[in-house]
Amino acid sequence: MIDTTFEITREILLMLLPIIVLHLGLAIFCIVKIYKEGVQNLNKVTWTLICLFVNLIGPIIFLIVGRRKEN
């Protein structure tokens, strides 16, 4: 019983790994943007938290509405 639970967790992790990597990559990319180019609509800390903790959708929302006037 304990064995199968462990199996599943490892399997989950393995499947989730690409998503986590993708998310972290995107989050770091966005956080660099936040501090290099500035933000709009919300403050920097809020955007950083959104990018870090809202899975994938967070960075996307930031890129659509949070970026300072495109330049």
């Binding site: 989950i12 499947m15 989730l16 690409p18 998503i19 995107l26 899975n55 994938l56 959708i57 960075p59």
Partner: peptide
């Protein structure tokens, strides 16, 4: 492009994991 691509990837990868686990 990046936003759109990630949007597709998000569902493509997460949906099966969600349904399974």
């Amino acid at each position: 492009f990046l936003i759109l691509f990630v949007g597709f990837l998000f569902f493509a990868m997460l949906d099966p994991v969600m349904t399974k686990f």
